[in-house]
Computed example of a mutant assay.
Amino acid sequence: MLHIGCHLSSTKGFAAMGRQALELGADTFQFFTRNPRGSRAKDLDTADAAVLADLLRERHFAPIIAHAPYTLNLCGAQESNRTFARDTMADDLRRLEYLPGQYYNFHPGSHVGQGVERGISYIAEGLNAILRENQTTTVLLETMAGKGSEVGGRFEELREILDRVVLADQMGVCLDTCHVSDGGYDIIHNLDGVLTEFDRVIGLHRLKAVHLNDSQNPTGARKDRHARIGEGCIGLEALGRVVRHPALRNLPFCLETPNELPGYAREIALMRAQAEA
């Protein structure tokens, strides 16, 4: 069975997101932990979180994905920026313990001219400062498109971060189809080869979730512009192979396509059909 969902707004609360996911035909979903372009988070409603936790268990959801704000940069040039990112992520992880056993996804960051090696070092330092042995949340590094000074556009960069994290068992990777394609990995014509490379460099056991997106740009463009399923350069046929691949099919897939809710419902149904094709 394909575990698939989409990105939902958290403004109406945890339980509302769970009910909305079910209405869309989803059995997982993603949400921002706080304003994606800011830092403030709503007060945590623990009772609401408990209702969602019960719903996830009763309806056999795959793990859901909490997404960190885009503004966080664990490898920023200014120490104050790195401290802000660490403090915000640590707070997010504390709050997520009210929804035990889920995923927390973040963009590794941009080294802003300091160099990839320095960026990787800062990211690992930040993770070592916030990860806790008793946490139930798995923290996911997202594969990036490699635009600008982004860290994480190559599998080797993610592996180097993981190698430097002390509590590496608390870590995993989220593969974004748009990002890896834009980053130069040919999932259109050589999905098996890309996954073999991922396994060689990182290990498929580290792959915990997939962001399922088409791309407005061809392979290797390094642009990071998502498109609706079947309307971009990756295409429906290639994305169908992604959801059917035996190494991926049991993972939670989350759509981040430019859609409103009816569009997400259509894409969820479309990809469920593709998974059975």
Rank of each mutant, 00 (worst) to 15 (best):
G13R: 12
A90E: 14
P262T: 00
R266C: 10
V173N: 10
D45V: 11
R34W: 07
R154N: 06
R225P: 05
P36L: 09
C6V: 09
D27N: 15
A269N: 03
L24E: 05
G109W: 08
H211S: 06
E231W: 01
A41Q: 12
A68Q: 04
I188D: 04
L2N: 06
R266E: 15
E260I: 09
E117H: 05
G18R: 00
D27E: 13
G126C: 04
R225L: 08
R228W: 03
A21P: 06
Q114D: 10
D87E: 15
N213E: 09
T83Q: 12
V51Q: 13
G76P: 10
D43W: 08
D192F: 05
A168V: 15
R241W: 01
D192E: 13
N81Q: 12
Y122L: 13
E256T: 01
H7A: 15
Y185F: 12
D214S: 05
D214C: 04
L175N: 03
F31H: 04
R37N: 14
L251M: 02
L2C: 09
P69K: 05
E157I: 08
G109C: 08
F29N: 05
G230H: 04
L270F: 04
Q135Y: 12
T257Y: 04
L93V: 01
P258G: 07
D199R: 00
E231G: 05
D182V: 07
V210H: 00
V51F: 07
A26D: 13
P218W: 08
A273E: 14
V210L: 03
T177L: 03
I202F: 02
I120D: 02
A85F: 07
P36D: 10
L158V: 01
A49K: 01
R132T: 14
E197S: 13
G119M: 03
A129M: 03
I202D: 01
L207D: 01
M1L: 07
G172K: 01
V243F: 02
I4W: 08
R266S: 11
F198W: 00
A269M: 03
R59C: 11
Q114G: 09
F61T: 11
